[in-house]
């Protein structure tokens, strides 16, 4: 384990005060730490003290099943499914959006074996052997599914950046629970952030798509 900017040589017992002669503060380290430190000892060394060892890139070739197609892709163990789709694929699928990269916004939502997941928090190698569905694969080329049609009809977007994630989440949810109430739709969408605040239109779209799915149109 390394912690950036942290001294790596022998340290006093954790929680003990640090003797003054062991305090080493660099300007950069001080500025880095000052934002988080309220008071007291700052003990930060330049990054060189904890320079990481060279790490193998470990590129490997895997096959992902995306939107029903088998796709060969070269990636590292640390490559997320999101990066694999958007950057690593030879013919990339950029409908899935990168926003927070921490699983908090839902813009990167894809279906993994039919369940919505944040593709930024799934290692691409974990998707091997599973069915990945992105927004591009929700309907056949040139067509739209019930949720997509309803999103257009109800103007369920403004800037549109969250729209692919919302559409993917809603497609899985409305197909499983077409009779869902507005409250249930809200709960299903709790992992998708829309900073423009288009939620009322999105909920209207979801309910209409649910009605359409129930009628089997």
């Amino acid at each position: 384990m390394r912690y950036r900017g942290m001294r790596s040589d022998p340290s006093p017992e954790r929680g003990e005060a640090v003797p003054d002669d062991k305090l080493e503060v660099s300007r950069r380290g001080f500025l880095q730490g000052a934002g988080g430190a309220a008071a007291g000892a700052l003990l930060i060394q330049p990054d060189a003290a904890a320079a990481p060892k060279a790490r193998k890139s470990g590129e490997q070739s895997v096959t992902l099943m995306v939107n029903g197609e088998s796709r060969d892709v070269s990636l590292e163990a640390r490559t997320t499914l999101l990066d694999a789709l958007r950057i690593r694929l030879e013919d990339p699928l950029t409908g899935t959006k990168l926003v927070c990269d921490r699983g908090t916004c839902g813009a990167c939502t894809v279906l993994l074996d039919g369940d919505p997941v944040c593709s930024c928090l799934v290692l691409a190698v974990d998707a091997v052997g599973h069915e990945v569905t992105t927004v591009e694969g929700l309907a056949p080329e040139g067509e739209m599914n019930a949720v997509q049609r309803a999103m257009c009809k109800h103007d369920g977007m403004m800037c549109g950046f969250c729209t692919p994630g919302i559409t993917v989440t809603l497609t899985a949810f409305m197909e499983a629970q077409p009779a869902a109430t507005r409250e249930e739709v809200q709960a299903a969408l709790s992992g998708n952030y829309c900073r423009c605040g288009t939620y009322p239109h999105v909920f209207d779209a979801a309910l209409e798509a649910g009605r359409e799915l129930q009628e089997g149109k």
Binding site: R4, M6, G36, A37, A41, I44
Partner: peptide, 12 residues
């Protein structure tokens, strides 16, 4: 990562 806190092996 900018806060070398007690939880991460720091001193405070």
């Amino acid at each position: 990562s900018d806060a070398p806190c007690l939880k991460k092996g720091g001193y405070e």
